[in-house]
Structures are given as structure tokens and as C-alpha cells.
């Protein structure tokens, strides 16, 4: 069975033995850099988001996706590729992912990709996944964070699955690989996915390749391995522009986006309201009940989930 062929060093961290009988897996992890949510302000003059002053981080949910990919690689062997779409200033964040343990990194970067909504973003990422697959002998799994902390749409992973034409499972909590009864499809392997749903869980079985979004909280993202940092800092990050990806120019960026932002405003939620309520207990209770009804959205208490 083929072992991990990646040329990357493992740093000081010893990799798991892998499970040669059923591995390896080539996993593509989609990550993006986002400004820290609490640090973003609306520039009221230009009515655009002022991200300049905000510190940026790897989208927290994507760190969980990367951790799942690395844990799967530790278990089954294989390769973890990072994929991102954005400006070149995303490259340092890809390097953080490399220092965590990813084997290689790809950035889809072109001015034409700017201003993309989830429709255009998922298309562009799909073209990136397909090209990574072509260049490396195929991909088995695409992992995404459950949602980004800036847009919080959670719509890129299912959109990506649709563009790729592969099955999907969202909010995956635990993933394992198992042998399929019939050997032909999926290289004789299937995924078993435990998925968190409202008030419970589902266990799904799906063929490879597939797209999963990883539930935030499914794991604790490992800290990067300091010994990998020098390698990660110098590693070659593959950058592909629109021409390299051979994208349909009408499907990317602003042009390929179906939605438009009509207005943007500061929600004024950066600080708590700090309203002090004082009175007789009955008065306080009335005021609180009004607040609670407003927050929970309807006159009644929230319904119980079906059991």
C-alpha cells in the first residue's frame, strides 16, 4: 500500500502510524483568513467595512476542519492540502496551516475573484479542488469549516459539493473510513460521518469523494509545531489566477455573484447595552418578560423540539 509520499518534514511531531489497510486519503481543506469579528468597524463615510485596523486570523471553524484532516491523515496516512481564495496577504495564514501539519498549500488569487458571494466563491473553490485533484492524482475528501466568522453563511460547503457533483455532509462531528462491501466505487472505501443536528445526531454513510463541513467544537485544533515553522515559512505556496484555473469569467467574482449588498451598517452590538432595571419584583419581572419575548422572537416561549 502506498505510504505518505509528501516531501514535507514532520517537524518534531511524530506522525501516527497510519492505517495502510484502508488509507491513504488525500484531503483538501478550505481555509480563509478573516478579521477578528469584534475588531471590524463600518466606515460610515465610504459605507464599507474597515478591516484595515483589525487583526486577522484563520477562520476559527476552518481550524477545526484542518484539525480533522490532520487527525484523519495521522490515522489513515495520506496528504493534507490547504486551499484558499483571496489576496496574496492570505499566504502567511496558509503557512500557519503548514506549520500545523498540512503538506502543501494552494491560493486562488486574482482581482477578478474579488467581491464574490457564496455562489461565485463555491464555483472558484471547486475549480481549485478539481485542479489540485488533477495535479496530484485525485482527491478523496474536501473539508470546510462549518461557517466563516465574517459572513456566517455556512453555504459555501454545500455549494462546493454541488459544483463538484459529489455528496455532502454538513456539521460533521466524527469521521471514520470503512471498507465498502462492493470494492469498485470509492476505491472500495466509504465514509462514516456522525453529524450534529438540532437536539441530536445522525450517522451517515457516503461514498468518496465527498465534501464535509466540520462542526465547530468537533475537536481542539492542535497548536502548530514550532519545529515546522522554518520549513513552513519557506515552503512554496502554489498561486493560481483565473487563467491558470481556466475559470468561466462570467462565474467568478462580482460578475459571477447573484447577490448584491444593498446597504451595510454597524449593528452597534460591539458593547452590551447595560440597561439597569430596578423596581418592585413585579415591575422587574414585567420588564424582563418583555425583553425575553423580544429576544426569543415570539410571544410564546420557544417550542420544544420534537422527540
Amino acid at each position: 500500500m502506498q505510504r505518505d509520499q509528501s516531501p514535507t518534514p514532520h517537524g518534531t511531531r511524530m506522525p501516527g502510524a497510519g492505517h495502510a489497510a484502508i488509507g491513504p486519503l488525500h484531503i483538501v481543506v478550505c481555509i480563509k483568513a478573516v478579521p477578528k469579528p469584534e475588531e471590524v468597524r463600518v466606515n460610515l463615510e465610504t459605507r464599507t467595512l474597515d478591516r484595515g485596523s483589525a487583526r486577522t486570523e484563520i477562520n476559527p471553524a476552518d481550524q477545526h476542519a484542518l484539525e480533522m484532516a490532520l487527525a484523519l491523515r495521522d490515522r489513515y496516512g495520506g496528504r493534507v492540502s490547504l486551499l484558499s481564495m483571496g489576496p496574496p496577504l492570505f499566504i502567511p495564514y496558509l503557512r500557519v496551516g503548514l506549520a500545523m501539519g498540512a503538506d502543501d498549500a494552494y491560493l486562488l488569487s486574482d482581482r477578478a475573484f474579488g467581491g464574490a458571494d457564496t455562489l461565485a466563491t463555491s464555483y472558484t473553490l471547486a475549480k481549485g479542488v478539481e485542479r489540485i485533484g488533477r495535479e496530484t492524482g485525485g482527491y478523496d475528501l474536501v473539508l470546510c469549516g462549518e461557517e466563516s466568522s465574517d459572513g456566517a453563511t455556512a453555504q459555501v460547503p454545500p455549494g462546493l459539493a454541488e459544483w463538484l457533483g459529489v455528496p455532502q455532509a454538513m456539521y460533521a462531528g466524527a469521521v471514520s473510513l470503512e471498507a465498502a462491501r462492493s470494492g469498485a466505487a470509492s476505491n472500495g472505501r466509504r465514509l462514516r460521518v456522525r453529524r450534529e443536528i438540532k437536539g441530536g445526531h445522525e450517522v451517515l454513510r457516503l461514498p468518496l469523494p465527498a465534501v464535509l463541513s466540520v462542526a465547530t467544537g468537533a475537536n481542539v485544533p492542535r497548536f502548530f509545531d514550532p519545529a515546522r515553522r522554518p520549513w513552513a515559512a519557506a515552503a512554496h505556496v502554489v498561486v493560481w489566477d483565473a487563467a491558470a484555473l481556466a475559470v468561466d469569467p462570467t462565474l467568478v467574482g462580482t460578475f459571477g455573484s447573484a447577490t448584491q449588498v444593498a446597504a451595510v451598517e454597524q449593528a452597534g452590538r460591539a458593547e452590551r447595552r447595560r440597561v439597569v432595571i430596578r423596581g418592585t419584583p413585579a415591575e422587574e419581572a414585567r420588564a424582563l418578560a418583555t425583553v425575553i419575548r423580544g429576544v426569543l422572537g415570539n410571544g410564546q416561549a420557544a417550542p420544544r423540539s420534537p422527540s
Binding site: 478579521p35 469579528p37 471590524v40 466568522s149 444593498a262 451595510v264 454597524q266 449593528a267
Partner: peptide, 9 residues
């Protein structure tokens, strides 16, 4: 952005 920004789409 965690509720800090609102947009109309």
C-alpha cells in the same frame, strides 16, 4: 462579524 455588522442583501 459576530453580529457587529449588518447588511441588506
Amino acid at each position: 462579524f459576530g453580529g457587529g455588522i449588518e447588511a441588506l442583501i
